[in-house]
Simulated scan of single mutants.
Amino acid sequence: MKNALKIVILVISLLSISCKEEKKERTTITKPEIKRNAPKEIAYTFQKSEEWLKSEGTNTKALDLVLAINRVDAVNLKKLDSILVPTDFSGDLEYYMPFPLEVAVLNDVNKIILFSYATQAFATYEYGILTHSGPSSMGRAKDKTPTGLFFTNWKAEETISTFNDEWKLKWNFNIENKLGIGFHEYELPGYPASHSCLRLLEKDAKMLYEFADQWELENAEKVRLKGTPVIVFGSYDFKNPKIWNTLPQDAKALSISEVELETTLSPFLPSILKEQTKREKK
């Protein structure tokens, strides 16, 4: 009888250990492993747009960098007289954008999208690792993009603007349903020009369209699960010249430190992790 009891206890113990290991395995975080090429130096100069396009415009990587640095699309790049050009094109795009490559305070957040108003740029992080970055054109002075924490809700490959029914918005992902604010592909002229939405280059809009999650509704009036967190932060100085035009004098003029981001993001983390837990338990 005693031997039988010992066997039962042993089996229960093994099952308990197995369950604990299974639970531990389910909650294991796998951080993205990204190999990046850093440039030898980060410095910038002004060049004539027409001349640069003639000599380097067919170089896809160089063109992508120049578009991002100047916060423009290809059509508007041709309209500029002078453009910012890096002296070294060997690095990956993320090294020329303002966001840090890692943010420890986001280590437990599976994915998040950040928009910096001051630098007109966006970034995605997965478990604290920067995975994508690029330029944006946010709300103009009289139609500022609201700041704070949002969650993606519904999306559409193409929809019509609520501001002007002649505007077609491609790869649109709404983040504020009542105000009709979202991110989507649209013209990037090199300054904040939108009517409060978050404009993106087409390739970036497509990427975020696939990256973010839609909400899940319980019924027409109630949201069961929110989508991917989006934080819009900072403010743009509309009275002074574009801050990226100071890059030739100070290559780090736009840089956002990890400490700055921690201060900005920390107040929102409890809400973000609460919603993330809900999604994981569905």
Rank of each mutant, 00 (worst) to 15 (best):
S133Q: 01
V259R: 14
Y96N: 05
G57S: 01
K20L: 14
W244P: 00
P192F: 08
I113H: 03
Y125N: 08
F211G: 06
A253N: 02
K252I: 00
G128Q: 05
D81E: 09
I113L: 12
E25W: 11
K144E: 14
K54Y: 02
I160N: 04
N37W: 01
F99N: 06
D81L: 06
S235R: 15
Y186W: 03
D250I: 03
L254K: 04
L201I: 13
V85T: 09
Y209V: 06
E94S: 12
T45A: 12
S49I: 00
D165T: 03
V66T: 08
G91K: 09
F99P: 06
C197R: 06
I7M: 10
F163G: 14
V85I: 12
A118Q: 14
L130W: 01
E21A: 12
I42E: 10
N219H: 02
F173R: 09
I7E: 14
Q249Y: 02
S235H: 14
V72I: 03
E216A: 02
P98N: 00
G190I: 03
T30P: 01
H184L: 12
S55K: 12
E260H: 09
K20H: 13
V232Y: 11
V232A: 13
W52C: 10
R279G: 04
A121E: 12
Y95G: 10
P39K: 08
Y186S: 04
V105D: 02
